[in-house]
């Protein structure tokens, strides 16, 4: 796997990607030969109505699922043929996930939740790393809280810290603001932008126009194919003077 560097190199290169689900004799094509390139360090938003295949695309790009056709190069390596264990290894070392429903372990404290990915790798400074990650999302005062005592925004920021802990190349965010009020949503999107500035590639899946406006580029998907893509004009950017996090 290539080392991470900010460059014009494509971190993700997808050609003619297909995914078909089989239920008995019924074939359900979800992705029908889709091409997509994502540059290292880019911030893209994938938009589309439900059933368009945007989640499936994200799952395949995030190594949670395997394509049934086409090719997928990640950091220059063809990964379409990897075994389940290899996929787990890539997820562990290269990928961070943020989900709409947070998916925090209810009985583990904030810092324990953030440290969860480290359970599956060798790390001796897990606690310090988790503190640092929580610090970067402005939650260093909540280390020993249980998720149930956090607000929605705090929960999602904990989930972001968890996605950050293994210093991933790419962070996938699936409707990260879907369960949040607008103020918390802004905070979360602000964090994603800051992470992007630090060099993380961010791939956001959403159906909200405003949320997508935080990205650099929007990909519109319909019926398993890319319908259109656009450079974001008038990108929403909090980095100038917004003090929401402080």
């Amino acid at each position: 796997m290539a080392t991470k560097k900010k460059s014009e190199e494509h971190i993700i290169e997808i050609n003619n990607l297909k995914k078909t689900y089989y239920t008995g004799d019924v074939e359900t094509p979800v992705l029908r030969g889709l091409d997509l390139k994502v540059k290292d360090g880019e911030f893209i938003a994938i938009m589309g109505p439900s059933g368009s295949g945007k989640s499936t695309l994200m799952h395949i790009m995030g190594f949670l699922d395997k394509p049934t056709g086409g090719s997928y190069h990640f950091e220059g390596v063809d990964v379409s043929e990897l075994s389940d264990d290899d996929l787990a290894l890539v997820r562990r070392e290269r990928i961070g996930f943020v989900f709409q429903a947070f998916f925090l372990l209810p009985r583990a404290t904030v810092i324990e939740n953030v440290m969860l990915p480290l359970l599956y790798q060798k790390h001796s400074h897990g606690h310090d790393m988790a503190k640092k990650a929580l610090d970067s999302v402005g939650l260093s005062h909540r280390l020993d809280y249980l998720p149930t005592s956090l607000s929605g925004g705090e929960k999602q920021r904990t989930a972001i810290a968890r996605a950050l802990i293994n210093a991933p190349s790419v962070i996938f965010a699936d409707e990260p603001t879907g369960n949040l009020d607008s103020k918390s949503g802004k905070q979360v999107m602000n964090i994603f932008q800051k992470l992007n500035e630090k060099g993380h590639t961010i791939i956001l899946v959403t159906h909200e126009k405003t949320t997508a406006q935080h990205a650099e580029r929007i990909i519109h998907i319909r019926d398993g194919l890319i319908e259109s893509e656009e450079k974001v004009k008038g990108r929403i950017n909090y980095s100038d003077g917004d003090e929401l996090l402080k």
Partner: peptide, 16 residues
Amino acid sequence: TREIGLRKAVGATAKD
């Protein structure tokens, strides 16, 4: 189920 899915998403193998 969800916990298991999450663990797998953050890199747990089937063996883990």
